[in-house]
Design a protein around this nucleic acid. Structure first.
Lengths: 197, 197, 197, 197
DNA sequence: AATGAATGAGTTTTCATTCAT
DNA sequence: AATGAATGAAAACTCATTCAT
């Protein structure tokens, strides 16, 4: 019998990779990078340790790819908001805040990871680079909005907005049960726009 | 020579403990908790591993005490601002922001630790409790100010303010060289008060 | 198209086998047996790992066949010298020394392998047997010459000669750049025959 | 109770180190470097893996120290022969050959290691350097003798002699039971001196 | 009180070998 | 005949913690 076609193999490979990335994302997010072992990831991704190393050269490389993967989702959420047509700048901001808060609620693990990595992993240079890169691309996205809103210093405004979201993320991480996520959302929107929930 | 009095011994013990806590704080802050070994801490604190275990039962307990120790400094800085007399609420806020931003600049390590711990060690239950506790006491401190400022929902305002500071801390950690710390400070103050730098 | 004849298939198989053996020989010689992986050999021989296992049952069996293959070349070089007609015994010895030293220079890899295997691999019983076998057949070849030269104890003389060649091989391996191969050759020949380079 | 004095500790440390070196020497010699695991060495040296790493930073460093250790014994044996007084150059050579052959018989493991390393580990640069160094110091020792014997090219003679010893070592390694060590010794001595066993 | 030698479980990573396709 | 995905045992190495001195 002939071996699988190249395309089939590529598909399989991509699927496997994503499978591993998802498992790693979840574990890194909930337990932290250092505390998560390759064995655990392999078990969660339902493959063997050895095979995992066919897809990622090292734990550190895996982490890097997880970072890219994780931020990609965040960026894409923002992107889709930005691409919605017929929205005033104000409505855009509301929509963006909505999407971030939704993500915090629904993809807690992802947010935890993104945040914990930003902090925890600065010690690993390659990861630090990756994070800085993707974080900056997020900020640029935000900047566009503040430009449209006519703010005086849109770059700094974008950074402040980013800081708020990150900070809330941290607080939410510390106590996701009791945290008044919705109230905070209203509060922020009120600061930026005249918003009645 | 007469034997040392009990108090002297207690002082000695306290001094030693602080010596260890400082060393651990610095290392945990710069390298992260998991990546710092007990040996390194002992070397930096200039005592033996064995003796270190006379003061702290385990690495995890040491971490807990480091968290308390680290937040205490932060809280005390805030406290001293709050206790300054003859300040209007507005001036208090300015003063508090000043003190936080000063700390970020001058005690980078401490900020890094506080933040990274908040995130990184949520996985360790005992540490999670400690952090939640001290973080809440910080928030209560802030709340007082917003009460005085007459804000409608001072608790949430305190949380938002805390989030901003944390978020800026994260951004500063990612790129402490290039980050426009002073510009961000002005921006924040302008949001809260009519402030001209 | 008609199916290939059995002979053609055998030839193909033999060609493949040789292809693998050559690759393994080169890698074992340069990197050592333990340090060379089956994957590397397969890549160098331009076939898949799986297919390689159709030709050799295990890495150890492959090694055994490599040993035979490697020594065969050595033996054949000697054989061709012995079969040259019209040579006096002295001339034969000169010729043989020539051929060994030429091999050392031109087939460094092969020599390295032969030697390193002789030593490195004594721990693997099956390989030890193979090496002993082929090494002895080499010695028998040499013995013939010393018989013809009329030496008293041709067997031991053959062994001594073999030892000299091996020993020089080792020294050459340690420093193939700086080693005075030609001077050593002259020296040896002078010992055995009145030889002027 | 007070900790041990520094000297006691140093003695203990030296003893442990030698204990480990001996175990490693034996195992590397009989099984080869790659095939011997740190666990095995630790077990043979009767300590834990972890403790072994207090004495040697890595397996490779251990190997290097084993090489030095192993050659030191060889060199010292030669040295002691050279330092015997009232010996003619001829007698010195006899004595040296005696000592080498004795070592081959009695310290088979040591010889095996020396040889196998010379060959097997050329791939590890640090070890290659170590071996080249100690091998050259051995050759210099030999050279002195050939100078005293008035040979024309003592350096090359020393190398040839070294090659013979190495080569015989290899042959002896391949078949230590059946090898006519004593006959070979006589043969060599006869070549160099008029020697009647 | 003080030391650091000692342990061993746990970590990341490699690789000969098998097997579904 | 041919592929390379898949496995898992084993390797080198680390480190929190204990304990004899």
């Amino acid at each position: 019998m002939s071996p699988r076609t190249k395309e089939q193999l590529l598909d399989l490979k991509e699927a496997r990779k994503e499978q591993i990335l998802m498992a790693a994302l979840e574990l890194f997010g909930s337990k932290g990078y250092q505390t998560t072992s390759i064995s655990e990831i392999a078990k969660k991704a339902e493959l063997s340790k050895g095979l995992l190393y066919n897809y990622f050269e090292s734990k550190e490389e895996l982490l890097n790819e997880v970072v890219v993967f994780a931020f990609k989702e965040t960026t894409e959420a923002g992107e889709s908001v930005l691409n919605e047509e017929n929205l005033t700048a104000d409505e855009l901001l509301v929509s963006l805040v909505d999407s971030y808060f939704l993500m915090m609620k629904e993809q807690e693990e992802l947010m935890k990871l993104v945040l914990s990595l930003a902090v925890q992993v600065s010690a690993i240079p390659s990861v630090h680079n990756t994070i800085t890169m993707v974080y900056n691309s997020l900020l640029e996205q935000l900047e566009v909005i503040f430009i449209n809103l006519g703010y005086e210093n849109p770059k700094n405004e974008a950074m402040l907005f980013g800081a708020i979201v990150d900070g809330i993320g941290i607080q939410y991480m510390l106590d996701s049960e009791g945290y008044p996520l919705d109230e905070m959302k209203s509060l922020i929107l009120k600061k930026y726009i005249d918003y009645e929930n």
